[in-house]
Each structure stands twice: as structure tokens, then as C-alpha cells.
Amino acid sequence: MTVSLSGTEVAKQIASQFPEAIAESSNQAVVVKTEYLLKVAEFLKNSPDFDFNYLNDMTAADYYDYFEVVFQLSSLNLNHKLMLKTRCYERLKPAVPSVCCLWRGAELMEREIYDLMGITFTGHPNLKRIVLWEGFQGHPLRKDYL
């Protein structure tokens, strides 16, 4: 049975490596600061305790004040999972580092978020609109898009 890792526990471990990385943590999820995202993700992927080798899903939600990018990570070897989040307070040009270099699976997920939510992923190899056509105005999944 997959163990759902407690966010606070994981946050402690991350904080021991990157003291300023954690923005918030709850039982369900860890929220890291955007600028530390890549480092934390790399740590989570490569540390033998976590070994998050599989990126289940990646999505974003619009909370008016900020965008929340949500990662669902799991480890196929240790069979545990974690919800990792990062928040992006910029509304006009939100940008989050791309995790494509760690998990290739993020490639299409990030393109989708870019397309529908308008978050730029810096370092993505091929950031283009995916389901909507080039030249489409706006990003439909934002709450202010009607």
C-alpha cells in the first residue's frame, strides 16, 4: 500500500538541507519557494530516503493571489508519495523553473500548464501551446478568463 508521506516530516528533512526553501507545510503537502524548487526537487529525486523517481502528475491552480503549481511525486521502489507545491505570486508574467531536466514526464504537463494557465517554465526545451493554437489570446483555466 502506498504510503502518503507527511508533508511536515518531509519539510523538516528538506529544511535541514535548504533552510530557507520551505514556505509552508501541512500534513498533506509541502510548499516550497519557487526559487528553491529545482534544488528541492533534485534533492527529493536523488536522496535515497525519498527516491522520488516518478512524477505522477503536475498541474496548477489559480487562487487569484497566486498560482499554485502542484507536483505529485512518487517512488516506485519505496512505494510512497508526496504532494509538492510551489506558489507563484506574479500574475502578469508568472514563471517557475522547469523540472524537465529531472523528470522527462514533465515536458507535456508543463506545456499544458503553460497553455491553459499561462505559467512560463524557464528551462523547458520546447515551451509552446499544446492544446490551443498558436496565437490564442488568454489562458482559459485562469479564474479571470471567461
Binding site: 502528475d57 502542484v70 507535456l108
Partner: peptide
Amino acid sequence: ELAFYIVSDSSIAPYRYHIRGTSLINLT
């Protein structure tokens, strides 16, 4: 793996409804 990520704001409709499209991600 077919997954749904649902955010609820306790209204009758989901606040955010995300579908993990298996077929799309298999095409990566």
C-alpha cells in the same frame, strides 16, 4: 494511471478540476 486532482471550495462545483490524461503523458 488515470488520476483526478480536485480542489474543492465547499461549493457544489469543483474549484479546480484537473485530469491526468494517461494517453497524453504516455506520448512523452
